[in-house]
């Protein structure tokens, strides 16, 4: 992919993000932060590429360390979001 196509995806995604996030109800702003945290750990893709490649040992270990950090975030972020969301309940019907 050339730089311009990537840039286009990026700009479009910013607009999507803008509208999607404004529609998030303020009561869920904390879960929003927790889940954005979890998904930004998609950076694990880069970490996996680095740790999978042969050739440079330092690069591989940096990658593996990044995999550890990102997976703390992925599992921790999604799990804590799920835990919070499970608490939001409606008034029980009498």
């Amino acid at each position: 992919m050339d730089f311009i196509s990537i840039l286009s995806i990026f700009v479009m995604a910013c607009f999507v993000g803008y509208y999607v996030v404004w529609s998030v109800t303020p009561a869920l702003h904390t879960p929003l932060m927790a889940v954005t945290n979890a998904i930004s750990s998609v950076i694990v893709v880069g970490a996996l590429v680095a740790s999978a490649a042969a050739g440079n040992a330092t690069s591989k270990w940096l990658g593996l360390l990044a995999v550890v950090l990102a997976s703390v975030n992925i599992f921790g972020g999604f799990a804590v979001t799920a835990r919070m969301l499970a608490m939001y309940k409606k008034k029980e019907k009498k």
Binding site: V16, G17, T36
Partner: peptide, 16 residues
């Protein structure tokens, strides 16, 4: 995946 996510999270934090 990384670009879309980055843009989403970036705008989310900025809006908050």
């Amino acid at each position: 995946a990384m670009i879309i996510t980055g843009a989403l999270v970036g705008s989310s934090g900025a809006i908050l």
